[in-house]
Design a protein around this nucleic acid. Structure first.
Length: 573
RNA sequence: CGGGGCGUAGCGUAGUCCGGUUAGCGCGCCUGCUUUGGGAGCAGGAGGUCGCAGGUUCGAAUCCUGCCGCCCCGACCA
């Protein structure tokens, strides 16, 4: 491609809406332009990167036996009602209501299961891995960070169909390995965490994560043993609050100025871990009292897992007054109405000597014994892990980091096959729903994360794997200096014959503009043809990542480019 | 959906508080000449419904009301 003919609208200044480096650089390098919040056009340069990512995805999915589909983005709403996901997804699901009710698919479990139901009848036809790379639509309440969270985005989604749970394990493992290869080939530094399966349903789930301050997820990591978990499910090795023996007697005491756990600690000198914080949630319109140790933070994802529902919310202060007869700062587990279900974090399991509200304004109880004084308590892991707590595997301190999710693998089980009636006959003649897995990779996120990890103050630093072009061929004064022009044109031809994709900067712009644009676009190699080096019958090769410059005799240019390019490609893997 | 910020030419912005020439500047763009190894110089030029609608006023980018859009924080996130 000749630069003079190319549509690559680079920007010298950073558009004010872009806050993070990848967004700024994708705009500045002319890869993308915004059309609306969370909606972007990929311009030719950016789309070349998309296509390279897609090629990697296809190769690695094909390698594990995946078969590529192209499923429709327009789905009849009925199929989404059948799995109850119209309600589950709420406003995130785009709906079209002219003539026939349709939705824009945010994911494709339903359609995949629909086809499986149509045609898969026997265990003999399994396993299958079906995938596609397609545009997904999700009406995100808050798109952000450029293409990192869009309302329309490209996803590689795949689905495994198995007859047995062991088969699912194998399909899941294949994806795990394929995902490792994909992200490694893309040049990303990433890690894998155990994750919540959320509203998708199903059992095991892991997320592939890129550490970044701009991430929307938080993970607990152990640098010592490699433990890694999304904070939604992370645990630590903290010891439960030990029982006192003998159990001291229950005692009501006035606490007129204590509204919070910290007030109790400051005013009465009680140890934090002996305080039981009471939190009230309304779960399916029923009140639930949740006891947490001290100032431990309730984790709503864990609560959802414990309750097996996401239909809950914190109670309003007025509701708490109505139910407990006391303000939120004075409630506790003693003398609660029978209708209130009581949950407690496992750190409080069957312990005693606790201080908590008395359900009477201005009073607390001390020496509460959860076994002696409180009715039925259900114990669950409900707390949010904090920085420096001991790793659950090796007791070394945990690190808490922000991360961007680039891939997610799920053991779905039979949720969708049951809802849509996708069943098979087994060897013994019995009928059983197909056992499914679901696996996703965000294409734009790979690109944005790559740029987050590979840029400098001049621009992007592409590796061969994702680079939109292999190299920039820069002709200095091409339009005036016929010697430069002839050599550059000749190299342009030869490089293309040697199968390199080349952006030939044949513009009449000054050298500085060309150098800066080349650094901004950041192709792995720059080949600089100018009168200065041509006097010595050489041209210059600049390696973008290292900044290293080689002066190469004219007859050795192609072979040196091949050699350097090969080196850069090797370095990635 | 709650909180905050912003909306002036392709990009970045001044002016808005305190209404008053023809809305200013840098970059980019067009023409000409001179330049050309890290974002050239000179000269000339084009480009604006000041987000939209209504209101106040002799007069509105500026004040008031409503709406729309974008960004950030939070909630949400299969």
């Amino acid at each position: 491609m000749r630069y003079s003919q190319a549509f690559i609208p680079t920007l010298r200044e950073v558009p004010s809406e872009a806050q993070i480096p990848s967004h700024q650089l994708m705009l500045r390098s002319g890869m993308i332009r915004q059309v609306a919040a969370g909606v972007y056009s990929f311009l030719p340069l950016g789309y070349r990167v998309v296509k390279k990512v897609i090629a990697i995805l296809q190769e690695e999915m094909d390698r594990i036996g995946g078969q590529e589909f192209h499923l429709p983005a327009l789905n009849p709403i009925e199929i989404w009602e059948a799995t109850d996901r119209v309600a589950a997804m709420g406003d995130v699901l785009f709906r079209l209501e002219n003539r026939r009710n349709l939705v824009l698919a945010p994911t494709h479990e339903e359609i995949i299961t629909y086809h499986a139901r149509q045609h898969i009848k026997s265990y003999k036809e399994l396993p299958q891995i079906w995938y596609q790379i397609q545009t997904k639509f999700r009406n995100e309440p808050r798109p952000r960070s450029g293409v990192l969270r869009g309302r329309q985005f490209l996803m590689k989604d795949s689905y495994s169909l198995d007859a047995t749970w062991e088969g699912l394990d194998q399909s899941y493992q294949k994806h795990y390995e394929a995902y490792h290869r994909i992200f490694s080939r893309a040049g990303l530094r990433f890690f894998v965490v155990g994750a919540s399966s959320g509203a998708m349903g199903g059992s095991a789930s892991q997320e592939f994560m890129v550490e970044s301050p701009y991430g929307e997820d938080t993970c607990a990591l152990c640098d010592h043993c490699g433990y890694a978990a999304n904070l939604e499910v992370a645990t630590s090795a903290l010891s439960p609050v030990p029982r006192l023996d003998p159990s001291p007697p229950l005692e009501l005491f006035p606490t007129p100025h204590a509204k919070t756990i910290n007030d109790l600690i400051e005013q009465f000198g009680v140890p934090e871990e002996r305080c039981a914080k009471s939190v009230v949630y309304i779960v399916n319109s029923q009140p639930v009292l949740i006891l947490m140790r001290g100032n431990d933070e309730l984790n709503e994802e864990k609560l959802a897992a414990a309750l097996q529902t996401t239909q809950f919310r914190p109670a309003e202060p007025e509701e708490i007054e109505d139910i407990f007869g006391a303000a939120p700062g004075s409630i506790g587990p003693i003398d609660v109405p029978d209708s209130v279900r009581i949950l407690a974090d496992t750190l409080l399991r069957e312990t005693n000597g606790l201080i908590s509200g008395a359900n009477k304004d201005g009073y607390h109880y001390k020496n509460i014994d959860l076994v002696r004084d409180v009715g039925i308590i259900e114990y669950f892991d409900l707390r949010t892990v904090r920085e420096h707590e001991p790793c659950p595997q090796c007791q070394q301190p945990l690190r808490i980091v922000r991360a961007i999710e680039i891939g997610h693998i799920f053991k779905l089980g039979t949720k969708y096959s049951e809802a849509l009636g996708a069943t098979i006959l087994l060897e013994d003649g019995s009928e059983q729903p197909i056992i499914m897995g679901s696996y996703g990779i965000g294409v734009e996120r790979i690109i944005a994360c790559y740029i987050e990890q590979n840029h400098d103050d001049k621009g992007i630093v592409w590796n061969p794997a994702l680079a939109p072009y292999d190299l920039s061929l820069i002709g200095i004064n091409v339009h005036k200096d016929s010697a430069v022009r002839d050599i550059a044109e000749k190299l342009y031809e030869q490089l293309q014959q040697a199968n390199f994709s080349v952006l030939f900067d044949d513009r009449s712009a000054s050298a500085g503009i060309k150098f800066n644009d080349a650094d901004l676009l950041g192709f792995p190699l720059q080949l600089i043809v100018g009168p200065r080096t041509l006097k010595e019958q050489t041209v210059e090769i600049k390696i973008r990542r290292s900044g290293e410059r080689l002066h190469v005799p004219l007859d050795a240019v192609i072979s040196t480019v091949q050699e350097q390019y090969h080196k850069l490609s090797e370095a990635e893997i």
